[in-house]
C-alpha cells in the first residue's frame, strides 16, 4: 500500500503508483443470487514493478485484471490508473483510458491477420486518432523496445506463437503506455518460449512500466517482484522477492 497518504491525494499524483486499488468489491448477479467475485482488494503497483496475481480459477484473478484495465465497473471501492480515478469514469471515459494508458496481453494471440506486425502494434494509436506517420514511428519504437524489429513487416501467419506474443506485447506498450495487464500470456506457448515472454514482461517493468501478470502457474509467477495469491476474491498471501540476491551456492546446499 502507498505510504500513509490519503486515498485522494495519492490517487491524484501522477508520480504516484501507476495502479492503485482500494477496497475493491465486485459482485455479479446470477439470477436471484449475488456472487462476490472480489471481496475488498487493496493493491498498489508502482512504475518499475511486476506483480503476479495467482490463485485457482474462480479466485477472482481475471476480474481483478478487468477492473484494473477499466473493462468493468466495480461494485464498490476505488481504482486509479496513472492518478485518474477509473471508478468515477463513464463507459466512454474508461474506453479512452484503456486506449491511452493500458496495454493488454491475453492468452489468445489476437492480432489482425490482414495487417503486418508493425500495423498491428500501431492499431491502438490509430483508434486514438494519432496520425499515421507518428503511429508508424511509435510502432517501430515499441517493436525495437522488445527486440522484435525484425518482425515489423511480417504478417501474423508468418510468425511463430512466441513471435506473435512478442508483437502483442509491443502493441501493449505502444505510445508509452505505463500499465501492462497480462492474462495468462504464456498459456498458448511452449515452456521455453513462455519463459522468454515472461522475461520480456519483466524487462518492461525494469524499463519503467507497471506490469500485472495473472497466472495460475506459480513458476511463471515467481518471475515477479511480488506474488499475490487470491482466494475466494480476497488476498490470501503476499510474497515479496527477497531483496538480497542469493548466490547459487546459497540456493543449492
Amino acid at each position: 500500500m502507498a505510504e500513509g497518504d490519503s486515498g485522494e491525494a495519492a490517487g491524484s499524483q501522477v508520480d504516484g503508483p501507476v495502479l492503485r486499488m482500494v477496497g475493491v468489491v465486485q459482485e455479479y448477479r446470477d439470477g436471484g443470487r449475488v456472487i462476490r467475485a472480489l471481496d475488498g482488494i487493496d493493491l498498489t503497483v508502482a512504475a518499475g514493478e511486476m506483480v503476479a496475481v495467482t490463485g485457482r480459477s474462480g479466485s477472482g484473478k481475471s476480474t481483478l485484471l478487468n477492473l484494473a484495465g477499466g473493462l468493468e465497473e466495480p461494485t464498490a471501492g476505488r481504482i486509479w490508473v496513472d492518478g485518474e480515478a477509473v471508478d468515477a469514469m463513464t463507459r466512454t471515459g474508461r474506453a479512452e483510458l484503456r486506449r491511452r494508458r493500458v496495454g493488454f496481453v491475453f492468452q489468445s494471440l489476437n492480432l489482425v491477420p490482414s495487417l503486418t506486425a508493425s500495423e498491428n502494434v500501431a492499431l491502438p494509436l490509430e483508434f486514438d486518432r494519432v496520425g499515421p506517420k507518428p503511429a508508424r514511428t511509435a510502432a517501430r519504437q515499441a517493436l525495437e523496445r522488445i527486440g522484435a524489429s525484425e518482425l515489423a513487416d511480417r504478417f501474423p501467419d508468418q510468425l511463430s506463437g512466441g513471435e506473435r506474443q512478442r508483437v502483442a506485447i509491443a502493441r501493449a506498450v505502444v505510445g508509452r503506455r505505463r500499465l501492462v495487464l497480462a492474462d495468462e500470456p504464456t498459456g498458448a506457448l511452449d515452456e521455453m518460449t513462455g519463459r522468454q515472454v515472461l522475461r520480456l514482461l519483466a524487462d518492461l517493468a525494469d524499463g519503467g512500466a507497471a506490469v500485472v501478470l495473472v497466472t495460475h502457474d506459480v513458476e511463471l509467477a515467481a518471475a515477479a517482484d511480488r506474488v499475490i495469491r487470491l482466494r475466494d476474491g480476497a488476498v490470501d498471501q503476499i510474497t515479496e522477492r527477497p531483496s538480497a540476491p542469493a548466490s547459487v551456492a546459497e540456493l543449492l546446499r
Binding site: A222, T239, P242, P245, L251
Partner: peptide
C-alpha cells in the same frame, strides 16, 4: 501451509532470477 508456501515461493523467486543469469 502458509508459512511453508511463503518460504517456497521466495526460494522460487530467487532461484528464477539466479537461473536466468546462470
Amino acid at each position: 501451509i502458509a508459512v511453508q508456501r511463503e518460504v517456497s515461493m521466495q526460494t522460487l523467486q530467487t532461484a528464477t532470477v539466479a537461473r536466468d543469469t546462470a
